[in-house]
Design a protein around this nucleic acid. Sequence first.
DNA 1: GCGACAG
DNA 2: ATCTTGTCGC
Length: 296
Amino acid sequence: MTVHHPDFAPDPSLSRAEMESLQREIARSAVFTDDLGFDPALLDDPIARATAEAASDTDETADPEDRADGTVPLVAGVDQSFLLDQDRALSAIVVLRPAGSEWEVVERVHAVTPLEIPYIPGLLSFREGGAILAAVEELTADPDLYLFDGSGRIHFRQAGIATHIGVMLDAPSIGVAKKLLCGDPVASTEGLAAGERVAIRANADVEGPNDIAGEGSSSEGHDAADPDWPTIGSAVQSKQYDSPNRHVNPLYVSPGHRMSAATAADVVLAFAAGYKLPEPTRLADAYADEVKAEYR
DNA sequence: GCGACAG
DNA sequence: ATCTTGTCGC
């Protein structure tokens, strides 16, 4: 893995204004359209996957382990836990690769770094980014896609933690949050069935990169009362109960980098395995807890 | 001054 | 995020 934008490092010693202007610059570098570098169908279509694997197996030198054929995507889940009494952050990364209709863990790494700043809504990546990058440095594998805990484009300056790290690595990334930071659901998100989604569009709380309303298209025809706000993510119902007395809240999924909002939601649903959190993030969360226990 | 916001 | 037992529902 290579850091394509070391100049976007989440330096926690920056002033708040500097952090925010860096986020605006990151948002301008972010790509919110699909540019995965692999076929996303491989993530949720066992048949397409089996076909691709069969094709690669005909090549004597093809080795799924090192992605020699470039068809088997490696997906990384990233999550942090904290050792607050020690003022340290622990980032854990779990890398998965397709194995039949399941997923197989190919690598798990972690890193512990000192906590420099407190949690400030909108500046999460400056608190947790250092630990994440340190953990990424420990990776032997080179993931094709990263799933982060937190937001991507659903962010005041369209540069949440998934966008920040995704752009730095120039890797496709997705933000998976349990709470909505900003933006408005286009419809009620109550009582959604598993597999359903509701678009989240920008509102006045969301800045550029370009003219947000109309995304810089025709500068006319948009006023504050009737804006053509772009979709920045979606509420995704990854799990739901049948009975009416017990329910699960949706996840708030947004593209981080090199991904559209629709594909980000597709990917998260493809990783739904009976739990609210998609497998990569769920396993990273469990690994973070596991490692954390060893640090005390 | 009030509101308000991931982890 | 973290501090924490039991408890409700599948």
